[in-house]
């Protein structure tokens, strides 16, 4: 069973190529790190799969559905910036998700909000940057989606919340779903990954099992990354 398939996926901005002929097969049941230096195409790849960019060439398929209405109900996407109207209250955002996504559990969302000490009656604009990120992550993870696309999910939150979030990702793990996480905080996250994709200049440089890589090089993924992408 293939969860995500990218066929020859290419995105060009004028003469600049952000993503070049990417072919990718992802199966369900994995937590996959999408790693690469700035400008390597991580966000572009995620946005193409989420349907926020139109590919120049090629196509992405989620459970065989080309990116579109059918794929969007299978994909839970977390952007790397805030995307909710700041005048909204947290509970309004939850109601919105509940209204549009059949797989959304508001009980689950409220539970996580309580654990992270966020009052659902607050307006988003009154929350700190970190708290806003947490709210968005909670919204994304309270869905029972097939593919989670998390773009820099822990960048703006403190280390204690980071640990909670990592545990939350593990507890939400399902065999029929995969999580694709783009991040540059590799050392924080590498223990929860089982596969990594190294992206460089818009191309996939490696797609491999994390423990396999450690066994081969006797190094952490973080140090391997630093060596591979040494400036």
């Amino acid at each position: 069973m293939i969860l995500l398939e990218c066929k020859n996926l290419t995105k060009k901005y004028g003469i600049r190529t952000a993503l070049s002929h990417v072919n990718l097969l992802i199966e369900p049941g994995h937590i996959i790190g999408l790693l690469g230096p700035n400008g390597s195409g991580k966000t572009t790849l995620i946005k193409l799969i989420a349907g926020l960019l139109a590919p120049t060439e090629g196509m992405a398929y989620v459970e065989g559905n080309p990116v579109g209405l059918a794929s969007k109900s299978l994909v839970s996407y977390l952007p790397d910036h805030t995307y909710l109207n700041s005048r909204m209250r947290v509970q309004d955002a939850i109601r919105l998700f509940e209204d549009f996504y059949q797989d959304f559990s508001s009980a689950c969302a409220h539970d996580m909000l309580a654990k992270l000490d966020i009052d659902p009656s607050f307006r988003l604009k009154s929350l700190s940057k970190g708290a806003k990120e947490k709210v968005q992550l909670i919204l994304a993870m309270s869905r029972q989606a097939k593919l989670y696309l998390l773009d820099e999910p822990i960048a703006g939150v403190d280390p204690a919340a980071r640990d909670y979030i990592l545990r939350m990702l593990i507890s939400n793990y399902r065999e029929d779903a995969s999580i694709l996480i783009s991040t540059h905080l590799i050392s924080d996250i590498e223990n929860i990954l089982d596969e990594v994709i190294f992206l460089q200049n818009g191309q996939i440089r490696a797609f491999t099992s994390v423990d396999g890589l450690r066994q081969k090089d006797h190094k952490s993924i973080d140090s391997i990354f630093r060596e591979v992408f040494k400036c």
Partner: peptide, 17 residues
Amino acid sequence: VRELAQEASVNPNTMQK
């Protein structure tokens, strides 16, 4: 597996393995 993975903060597949 899920409890142990969560306790150790590791991927459930790794724990399973």
